[in-house]
């Protein structure tokens, strides 16, 4: 009886800890998947650029860009949508990746946008954001 009461009293504490940790761990996992996907798509886009000597000149969602790259055989069709965990080709339900270029197709911009706040979370482009590396603290 005593241990049961203790366990019941401990539940709110454990729930509180889980409420702090679980969302953050989920967010971190998603961040890692998104970064990996972004790098994979970027590399394929670069290969497309070499072949066509220009980037696609239209605004595309992540799903449409992936479809284009897969059709041109620069990307593996098994690439997963990091937000849903399903195949990116078949699942366009949750897609926070956006692509656009300039009129000449000379530059590219890949952005991952928060679905709620519309804030840019990650960005890879030809100009200012050429890598996802974060600055180290000084040695």
């Amino acid at each position: 009886m005593k241990s049961t009461l203790r366990f019941i009293a401990l539940i709110p504490v454990l729930v509180g800890v889980a409420m702090i940790l679980v969302p953050s761990i989920r967010e971190k996992r998603l961040e890692l998947r998104v970064r990996s996907t972004l790098l994979t798509v970027q590399e394929a886009l670069q290969r497309l650029h070499v072949a066509d000597e220009e980037y696609p000149r239209k605004r595309l969602s992540g799903h449409d860009l992936v479809k284009l790259l897969v059709d041109r055989k620069f990307l593996d069709p098994t690439l997963l949508n990091p937000w849903t965990g399903k195949s990116y080709l078949s699942d366009a339900s949750q897609d926070c990746l956006l692509y656009h270029s300039d009129q000449e197709g000379e530059i590219y911009n890949l952005s991952v946008v928060s679905p709620k706040s519309k804030r840019v979370l990650f960005q890879l482009d030809s100009t200012e954001h050429q890598s996802l590396e974060e600055e180290n603290e000084s040695f």
């Binding site: 005593k2 009293a9 401990l10 504490v13």
Partner: peptide, 18 residues
């Protein structure tokens, strides 16, 4: 209550775990 005291003692160590 004793049971609440016992459970509350875990708050600080679990915060350290966090």
């Amino acid at each position: 209550p004793d049971s609440v005291k016992w459970a509350a003692q875990w708050i600080a160590p679990l915060l350290l775990l966090i």
